[in-house]
Design a binder for these strands. Structure first.
Length: 337
DNA sequence: TTGATTTGACCGGT
DNA sequence: ACCGGTCAAATCAA
């Protein structure tokens, strides 16, 4: 669920999943009440509860974006309520402010985002499984706490347009109001915790289990640098974008942005292979799509990463992509089938 | 050295 | 004019 292929999830199904997540949230709230004493005495319990709440909220937020994107309603500006300001500006042909050199050398291209309410959640921590980079902080009128602005770390290397702003709650300063704007389109290994661990996925039918592991892996900064360098030097069109495979890549890879280069894939595969090779032997994955009769699984080895789908997912995926992989050994990108 | 954060300036919407 | 959102130079930190 890292990103949604806009319009690929039927809104009615998205609605169902949203309802389920909301019920799960209610459940965790009730659980939190029941475990009050335990939470007080054991901070780990509280952390766990918070993590669950945050991930549910995050998933809900992104799913609602998917739903909104698949709804052809007039409110979906530019096709999605989560559509990026910049994109919509370009696509609509509106003038983009030209940077104006100022006395201190700073550019003066500023543009306020259009009214995009985003999805607000309340959390006791700023951690949500994504990697964010702070780009601003403001004192908000009528509020005793400043507001911090974050963009996705992969805004530039992968074009991810997700942003959020956080602000301490007026009512409860120990909590944060977090507003998410836009959808993550990045592929970040640090978000792998949102992947589902289903050791026996073949027997689980259409049930789904969400695993909320902690962030125990972050992309080494060195590798990010290499990625950027390779992207600049080798702007090769991604094989995933080849005719007949685009739908597949959008649905399966889901988080690879249209602009992703093979370098992304190779490095990601390499990183995943290293990660998997060192810590996991088998990685089974199901996504929120599972609720829509889709079940997927990931099997990996230190050298390759394969993703397969259960037969009942074919109707969803439909075509040719049942398998894809990464191979960093000789630089050849394995063909999709 | 390089990525992340801070912070003042600037922009656009109201 | 005010305010919220964003940019980017300066600074910090690993």
């Amino acid at each position: 669920m890292e990103s949604c292929s806009q319009g690929q999830i039927p809104s009615d199904r998205a609605e169902t999943v949203i309802q389920n997540i909301n019920q799960a949230k209610e459940g965790t709230n009730q659980l939190e009440d029941l475990l009050k004493d335990l939470i007080k005495s054991n901070p780990t319990v509280k952390k766990t509860m918070d993590a669950i709440n945050e991930n549910l909220s995050s998933s809900l937020s992104e799913l609602e974006c998917c739903k909104a994107a698949s709804d052809p309603g007039p409110t979906a500006r530019g096709g999605s309520v989560c559509s990026d300001d910049r994109k919509s500006e370009i696509s609509s042909g509106k003038r983009k402010a030209v940077p104006i050199p100022t006395s201190d050398g700073r550019g003066a291209s500023r543009r306020r985002s259009q009214a995009s309410p985003g999805k607000t959640t309340i959390s006791s921590t700023l951690e949500d499984g994504h990697t964010w980079r702070k780009y601003g902080q403001k004192i908000i009128q009528g509020s005793s706490h400043h507001r911090s602005y974050y963009r996705c770390t992969h805004k530039y290397d992968q074009g991810c347009q997700a942003t959020r702003h956080t602000q301490r709650s007026e009512d409860n300063p120990s909590k944060y109001n977090i507003t998410y704007i836009g959808v993550h389109t990045c592929q970040d290994p640090s978000t792998l915790h949102q992947i589902i661990d289903m050791p026996d996925s073949k027997e689980t039918g259409n049930s789904f289990l969400i695993s909320f592991g902690s962030n125990n892996y972050s992309r080494p900064t060195k590798i990010i640098g290499q990625l950027q360098e390779q992207q600049v030097q080798r702007p090769i069109p991604s094989p995933l974008q080849s005719p007949g495979t685009q739908d597949c890549s959008e649905e399966v890879v889901s988080s690879l942005t249209p602009g992703s280069s093979p370098a992304d894939c190779f490095m990601l595969g390499d990183e995943l292979a290293a990660l998997v090779g060192s810590t996991w032997h088998t990685l089974n994955v199901s996504s929120i799509h599972d609720q829509a009769d889709m079940l997927s699984s990931l099997h990996s080895s230190p050298r390759s990463l394969e993703m397969g789908f259960m037969p009942n997912s074919f109707a969803q995926l439909d075509q040719d992509c049942m398998l894809f992989g990464f191979d960093n050994e000789d630089g050849d990108f394995p063909p999709l089938r």
